[in-house]
């Protein structure tokens, strides 16, 4: 199993454009936005915070959704389409382990990207370190699990790798919208804000844990539920060839 994770990690790193984008893009975006003085000034719309403070959770949403929905479904569907899974099923090792390896590597990449964002925010813009580290960890892990599980459902149901890519992009766009990546959340109608709090990866819980007190347990519970349901659907419907 360790060998598989190692090989998958190498493949991840070798796909430079995608891996760099996943790891570095949120930080870059933060640096670019932070370079604009107006966005570094506290304002009442953000509850006395600066724009960049309020946007941190949306950056985390981007990271989790990008890896969970842009990478995972296409790689998994491509493995199936190219017969990689079929090839492995002729060996004593079950092909499911390859998928587990794939998920582990991508999950680690997502965590790394979030940590990087926390460090850059702290060092460059003096953003507080997460107020509630455990809560943030829960929010990121559960939100990530929910998003990855949605990605796996898409990989399981899509007939081809191309279709998987298309469907996943549509869901990705939608989650980015609700997560306040395109338009900052304060500009969104309150209904959309509400949906955003409950749709994976769960922007509200991340924001609360980072700069508020503690995440709302209901938000976390929803993420756990999404992971469970989507994970079960994916496992039930997955085709190996």
């Amino acid at each position: 199993m360790l060998r598989i994770i190692e090989v998958e990690a190498r493949l991840f790193v070798r796909d430079r454009l995608n891996s760099l984008f996943a790891l570095v893009f949120p930080c870059l975006l933060l640096l670019v936005l932070g370079a604009i003085p107006g966005l570094r000034t506290p304002a009442p719309e953000f509850g006395g915070l600066r724009f960049i403070d309020s946007y941190l959770s949306s950056l985390v949403v981007f990271t989790l959704a990008f890896i969970g929905l842009q990478r995972v479904p296409t790689v998994v569907a491509t493995y199936r389409e190219k017969g990689v899974l079929r090839r492995l099923s002729t060996t004593p090792m079950h092909p499911a382990r390859l998928l587990v390896g794939q998920l582990v590597v991508n999950f680690c990449a997502a965590i790394l990207s979030v940590l990087l964002t926390i460090v850059v925010a702290y060092v460059v813009f003096g953003v507080d370190l997460p107020h509630h580290p455990l809560g943030l960890a829960c929010a990121v892990v559960l939100g990530g699990a929910g998003t990855f599980a949605l990605g796996l459902v898409i990989a399981a149901l899509a007939p081809t790798a191309r279709a998987a890519g298309g469907w996943a992009t549509a869901v990705f766009m939608l989650l980015m919208f609700f997560g306040g990546v395109y338009l900052p959340r304060f500009m969104l109608p309150s209904v959309v804000q509400k949906i955003g709090s409950y749709s994976p990866p769960g922007v509200e819980a991340v924001q609360q844990a980072w700069l508020g007190s503690a995440p709302d347990w209901r938000h976390l519970a929803i993420m756990g539920l999404v992971s469970l349901v989507a994970g079960t659907v994916a496992a039930r419907t997955f085709r190996w060839e």
């Binding site: 598989i4 070798r14 017969g83 090839r87 060996t91 004593p92």
Partner: peptide, 30 residues
């Protein structure tokens, strides 16, 4: 299964996997 070696039609490996990596990965299964 470990006593049967199979070479299948139309089954590939990940595009970016190197020959040496494939050989060492598969040899770890046996």
């Amino acid at each position: 299964r470990s006593a049967i070696g199979v070479q299948l039609q139309a089954s590939e490996l990940p595009e970016r996997m190197r020959v040496g990596e494939a050989l060492s990965l598969f040899s770890s299964f046996y």
